[in-house]
Computed example of a mutant assay.
Amino acid sequence: MRLKRTGIAYSGGVSPVLPEQEMKAAAAREERRRGFDFSQYAAEKMKLMNEALDSAVAMRRPAVIHEAMRYSLLAGGKRIRPMLCISACEFVGGNQSGVVPAACAVEMVNTASLIHDDLPWMDNDDLRRGNPTNHKVFGENIAVHAADSLVAFAFEFIATTTKGVSPERVVACVDELAKALGVEGMVAGQVVDMKLTGNNANVTLHTLEFVHSHKAGALIEASMVMGAILGGGSHEQVNKLRVFARKIGLLFQVVDDILDMTMSPQEIGKTAGKDLATDKATYPKLLGLKGAREYAKKLCHEAKEELAEFDSDKAAPLLALVEFITSRKS
């Protein structure tokens, strides 16, 4: 059943944050100024990651669990977190060959979190990336095991396949990813989010930022910090990218909340209007749709400012990713 949009019009041809013409003009100016083709860059990184993930999680016995893992892992998606991981590595002067295992690991963890989120006792979703959710295809028991297996394998994959990097930096990445997953990261955000669902009349911006800086933002932060560590980044560079990642982690969720309110299931590839139906705490609910869009623009600007003092050519992929996250429609 399609949920009513309560007087809010939406259009697939318009960015959820900025009008399409404004976004296209801004993107064109940015690319002309920097001589950087983000579309080509994103396509190259997506191809690299899809091939690496396909190879990493090959079909083995027992077949059903590997089928379930591959079903969600290879279902598509924009590969934003792996792209951030690789871009952060290259930003500090590293080579992408040394960071691909970590980029694969963050996508495995992200996929696992989506499988969990879609389960009946969590968000109870039937659609993900335009396809039936994992538990709808394989059943709830297999879905849980597939997600857990992806998490476990993510750590194994970093530890056993990262080459040309000191053991100390590999251990630092394992620590970063573990914190992003646990009570200092995604678990903390998810638990508070669950507590607020249906009980958010007095929620504050501070509380909402806590939820999303942990639930969604923690893995985005870990992706960039891991890339910077494996690329040989300095303490200053790692810290700058950590702050940058926190800004875009919040930005990602603000845009996600706007999409849920303003787009159709066909446009975003998953159930739309779910936040309203389940009475979740969201940025449009707290700030209004206009206020949420203004907040997204503010976060976009603040994220870019974190990289202002660095070499513009090296920062170009990260700055373009900020624009992409701001203007995404799915």
Score class of each variant (00 low, 15 high):
Lys4Pro: 02
Arg5Asn: 03
Arg5Lys: 14
Gly7Cys: 02
Ala9Ser: 14
Ala9Met: 09
Ser11Ile: 00
Leu18Trp: 12
Glu20Leu: 08
Glu22Trp: 00
Met23Ala: 15
Lys24Phe: 01
Lys24Val: 02
Ala25Cys: 08
Ala26Glu: 07
Ala26Thr: 03
Glu30Trp: 04
Arg33Trp: 00
Gln40Gly: 11
Gln40Trp: 07
Ala42Gly: 02
Lys45Trp: 04
Lys47Phe: 00
Asp54Thr: 10
Val64His: 15
Val64Gln: 15
Glu67Cys: 14
Arg70Asp: 09
Arg70Phe: 04
Leu73Val: 07
Ala75Phe: 06
Gly76Tyr: 09
Glu90Phe: 09
Asn95Trp: 10
Ser97Gly: 12
Gly98Cys: 14
Val99Thr: 14
Val100Asn: 02
Pro101Gln: 08
Cys104Gln: 00
Thr111Trp: 02
Leu114Val: 12
Asp117Gly: 13
Trp121Ala: 14
Met122Asp: 11
Asp125Gln: 08
Leu127Phe: 15
Arg129Thr: 14
Asn131Trp: 04
Asn134Tyr: 05
Val137Ala: 02
Glu140Arg: 11
Asn141Trp: 07
Ala143Gln: 08
Ala143Trp: 02
Val144Met: 15
Ala159Asp: 00
Thr160Ser: 08
Thr162Cys: 07
Ala172Cys: 07
Leu177Asp: 07
Gly182Leu: 06
Met186His: 01
Gln190Ala: 06
Val192Ile: 13
Asp193Met: 05
Leu196Met: 13
Leu205Asn: 12
Leu208Glu: 08
Glu209Pro: 03
Glu221Trp: 02
Ala222Ser: 15
Ser223Asn: 11
Val225Met: 06
Ala228Lys: 02
Gly231Ile: 04
Ser234Ala: 08
Glu236Cys: 02
Gln237Met: 09
Asn239His: 12
Ala245Met: 06
Lys247Phe: 11
Ile248Gly: 01
Leu250Gln: 03
Asp260Gly: 09
Met261Arg: 11
Met261Gly: 03
Thr262Phe: 07
Thr262Gln: 13
Met263Gly: 15
Met263Ala: 15
Ser264Pro: 06
Pro265Trp: 08
Pro265Lys: 03
Gln266Cys: 08
Ile268Glu: 11
Asp275Ala: 10
Ala281Ile: 00
Ala281Ser: 10
Gly288Gln: 06
Glu294Thr: 10
Tyr295Ala: 04
Leu299Pro: 04
Glu302Arg: 12
Ala303Gln: 05
Ala303Phe: 05
Ala303Glu: 03
Leu307Glu: 13
Ala308Ile: 09
Ala308Asn: 07
Asp311His: 14
Ala315Leu: 06
Ala315His: 00
Ala320Gly: 10
Leu321Ala: 07
Glu323Val: 01
Thr326Asp: 03
